[in-house]
Write a protein that binds this DNA or RNA. Sequence first.
DNA 1: CAGATGACGATCA
DNA 2: CTGATCGCCATCT
Length: 87
Amino acid sequence: MNSFAEKVRAVVRKIPKGKTMTYGAVAKAAGRTGAARAVGTIMSHNDDTTVPCHRVVRSDGKRSGYNGLMGVSREAILAKERAELAA
DNA sequence: CAGATGACGATCA
DNA sequence: CTGATCGCCATCT
C-alpha cells in the first residue's frame, strides 16, 4: 500500500454506486493531479477485481474498460446501479 | 538511469 | 464536431 496504484485502487473502490469518476479526478484523489494517464495504465493492469473500473470514465465519458469484459456492457452496469439508486 | 508503454487530457487542424 | 498530435505521469524492461 505504498505505490500510486494502491491509492488509485482505494479511491476507485470508494466511488459511490451509480456515480462515475474521471481518471483525472481519481488521480487527483490519489494525490497526483494530472496523472490520468498513469491511472489508466494502472487500471489496465487491474490487479484488484474489487475495484469497479466501470465507474471510472474519461472526461468524454467514453471508453473505460469492463466494456463487455464480463459479458455486460459498462453502460448496462451503470444504468443498473442508477436504477438501483432511483428505486 | 534511460527508454518504451499506456483504460488519459487538452489543444490544433 | 471529428481526427490527429503533443504533453503529463507512473510502472516495467
